[in-house]
């Protein structure tokens, strides 16, 4: 479903918001969500604390690990360095909404999720939602043609358990299923 852009767009002076909580509408996993947040709050914190979508993980909060990877308007980005308020009018997709756009996903997995399980592409699982959101993005961008390319284009997601060879195997398998 379409998410409307913020209605207020007169001169910037008129539209100054914050620093206290302000009403923000976010389209997340196909649903429009209204929240009251301070402008300084990151998309990651909003997803986890306000919307109880804890699939996106806080690993560093400074753009160095990739555990918070989500999609904004279909592109993989880091939720920790994205202010939530800047996402008004954009479509946010998290791991919870990957299998089905409505975020329910009951029982159904995205092929990438299935292959991550089949290839044992994770151990502790903490970086996994970020890996999967990044992996699907990597395939969609056309950067998964061979292992060398997957290696480079998946290097923004650190897996400290070092499941990397299996992550590549899962991406190859999911890529070949599509």
């Amino acid at each position: 479903m379409a998410v409307r852009t913020p209605e207020a767009s007169p001169g910037p002076e008129a539209a100054e918001r914050g620093p206290g909580p302000v009403k923000v509408r976010l389209g997340v996993n196909g649903r429009e969500r209204g929240i009251d947040i301070e402008p300084r709050v990151s998309l990651l914190e909003v997803l986890r604390a306000e919307l109880d979508l804890t699939g996106a993980k806080r690993g560093c909060d400074q753009g160095t690990c990739g555990a918070c990877t989500v999609w904004v308007d279909g592109r993989r980005v880091l939720a920790c360095l994205t202010l939530a308020i800047t996402c008004e009018g954009r479509e946010v997709t998290t791991i919870e909404g990957l299998a089905r756009p409505d975020g329910t996903g009951d029982g159904q997995l995205h092929p990438m999720q299935e292959e991550f399980i089949a290839q044992d592409a994770f151990q502790c699982g903490y970086c996994t939602p970020g890996q999967i959101m990044s992996a699907v993005g990597c395939v969609q961008e056309g950067h998964a043609t061979d292992d060398a390319e997957i290696k480079e284009w998946m290097s923004g997601n650190i897996c400290r358990c070092a499941a990397y060879p299996h992550i590549r195997a899962a991406i190859r398998a999911a890529r070949d299923r599509v």
Partner: peptide, 19 residues
């Protein structure tokens, strides 16, 4: 992160003037 206010700029001149 300290509290901040937020403005969504819709024209270059306005943004430049504000900052």
């Amino acid at each position: 992160m300290r509290p901040v206010t937020y403005l969504l700029a819709d024209d270059v001149e306005g943004a430049v003037r504000t900052v």
